[in-house]
Simulated assay, not measured.
Amino acid sequence: MSSPEDRLAELRDNLAAVRSRIQRGCAAAGRSGEEITLIAVTKFFPVTDAALLAELGVTDLGESRDQDASVKSAQLAALTGVAVRWHFIGRLQSNKARSVARYAGLVHSVDRQGLADALEDGVRRAGREALDVLVQLSLDAAPAAEGRGGGAADELMRLADRIAGSDVLRLAGIMAIAPLEGDPDQAFSRLAEVAQWLRENHPAAGIVSAGMSDDLEAALRHGATHVRIGTALLGRREQQFR
């Protein structure tokens, strides 16, 4: 098991490599790396890694399970005085929404009205002014021949309209995950089209959360503003999944 000093050095090197990839990817796409928010996905890794990343200046951290994120957010606050923003990036069950609404700065995975309702209730119970959320677009299936963006996009726009009408949820943008099989450029091209449609109807919804360790360059080519990086930054764990 590595010492804290060795782990810090490892994370520093990995962070430099990831930031270099982001800069190169943005340059190739005619964009500035300053436009991009790097989210370190700390799922399955200890809170000490989150603290080291905060020490290195990474203050956007992602988790996909409430039982882990709720504990880590409290532990990290006790370990360091650095202010971090927690991103909930996994599929969220409605019965966990009240807990997530207490600590999350941005929920990426709002994919149904029932979840929006539950988050809304959680924000009110937590006494928070508002919570930023992203609507999640499924890229697993080919778009249906209805509406401008297909069936999934039509459903997403109805959900976006519902969130935009909330007094405690703020519609901040869109999120998607490229399918494991297939061309990520094709998937993210469709995401870019739907993201543009979303902005036309809701101009403040400018976040595009897309791209992970294996496909971040493709996501940057198609307008990603937030990339969610786990393996390339923290390494692999036996129980880690994509």
Rank of each mutant, 00 (worst) to 15 (best):
M157D: 10
A172Y: 05
E146T: 14
I89V: 15
L131K: 13
S94M: 07
A164V: 02
G114M: 00
A205C: 12
L92E: 03
I174T: 06
R148E: 15
G182Y: 01
V168L: 03
W197C: 04
F188S: 07
H202A: 08
A195K: 01
A97V: 03
N95S: 12
R162Q: 14
G114E: 13
D183F: 09
G150R: 13
V194Q: 10
R128G: 07
H108V: 06
S209D: 04
R199L: 06
G150P: 12
V107Q: 09
S99A: 12
D111Q: 09
W86K: 15
S189E: 14
G147F: 10
A145P: 07
Q113N: 02
R91Q: 13
V194A: 04
I89T: 13
E155F: 00
D111R: 12
R190C: 04
P184S: 08
A141C: 03
A160C: 08
P179S: 10
L191K: 11
L169Y: 07
E200T: 07
D167F: 00
I89N: 11
F88Y: 15
A118K: 13
R199S: 05
E120F: 01
G147P: 14
D154K: 04
A130I: 01
S189A: 15
G149Y: 08
D121Q: 11
A141H: 12
F88I: 08
A178Q: 11
L119F: 06
N201P: 02
P203K: 04
H87L: 05
R190W: 06
L134I: 03
G182K: 06
H87K: 14
A116Q: 08
A178M: 12
R112L: 11
A204F: 00
G147E: 14
L156C: 05
R162Y: 15
R85G: 05
L137Q: 00
D167C: 04
G122S: 13
M175I: 05
E155G: 05
P203S: 05
G147K: 15
S94H: 09
E129F: 00
L139T: 03
V100I: 09
E181C: 01
M175Y: 04
E129T: 13
L119S: 11
Y103E: 13
R112A: 14
V100R: 13
R190D: 06
L115Y: 04
V208W: 02
K96M: 10
I177Y: 09
G127T: 10
L115V: 08
R162N: 10
E181H: 10
L115P: 10
A104V: 05
D132P: 09
G206Q: 04
A205D: 11
L92G: 06
D140I: 01
S94Q: 12
G122D: 08
R124E: 13
M175P: 10
E146I: 11
A160M: 05
I174M: 02
L198V: 10
G150K: 10
L92A: 05
G165H: 11
D140Q: 13
E155D: 15
R98W: 01
